[in-house]
Nucleic acid binder design. Structure first.
Lengths: 124, 124
DNA sequence: TTTTTATATTGACAAATGTAAACATAGATG
DNA sequence: CATCTATGTTTACATTTGTCAATATAAAAA
């Protein structure tokens, strides 16, 4: 059904907006939220392409329409994360985290917080 | 000079191969290593595009040529990682790591090892 | 009900990407 | 030397992506 290829940037922008809502969103609201200079027609084309790809569905409400994500952010995000891991870190999450730590994107404090969180999860 | 846009998949494949070497690599060696079904001409076109983008340089050795990365894997990888962080984790590395931990891509053991590594770094 | 205003739909087109055939040529081989 | 072979170079073309203008229409406003 849906492919595992990465979305083009413009379509991803639309998805990111849809993912901010649980319910379906009106075309005009999407356009307003994105607030990049897109013409309405541009957005509609992208929405159409996303429907074709099976990423979103289109709901009619009279003559207006709204759109709702089918592919979850979670799953797409995981695909992207795994891809990054595979490509640049030989698939090792540890390497990625180490890199983040080395360039101070991630602090010691962050790490210990996560560690605590993990312990809590184990204990559950 | 060079843009901060992501490379197309095909060109990235070539870069990933070049990054595996410190020195310049012969066209034929690249082709052999990639070992996807590309025609030589295909590879050459991609190499040409990468040269234009300023990602690699072309060295002549007689009539043969070899190519060498100019943009480092480090810098490109950082761009990509930051992009992922920004797009799916509100820029928070901690969120990313938490997600990795939650889906067991990252273990408690990994975390403590990284933590140790960090402490060592601080002490230096 | 006439006009205006949103929205939707379609067709178009340039640029980027993926992929290779065709042609040219310098070395290797017979 | 004549031919073969690997490599380089050029041109080409289908597809995908980015972006709209133009057009049609329903709903709202005058």
């Amino acid at each position: 059904m849906n492919e595992d290829k990465r979305l083009p940037d413009s379509e991803l922008e639309v998805m990111l907006e849809l993912w901010r809502h649980d319910d379906a969103v009106r075309t005009s609201d999407i356009l307003a939220s994105l607030d990049n200079g897109w013409a309405l027609a541009t957005l509609k084309v992208l929405l159409g392409r996303l429907v074709e790809r099976g990423y979103i569905e289109c709901l009619r409400d009279g003559r207006l329409m709204s759109y709702k994500a089918i592919i979850t952010e979670q799953s797409y995000c995981k695909r992207e994360t795994d891809g990054l891991l595979r490509k640049y870190f030989k698939g090792s999450a540890k390497s990625l985290v180490a890199a983040l730590a080395m360039d101070d994107t991630l602090t010691q404090k962050d790490l210990s917080e996560i560690s605590d969180m993990l312990k809590a999860k184990e204990g559950e």
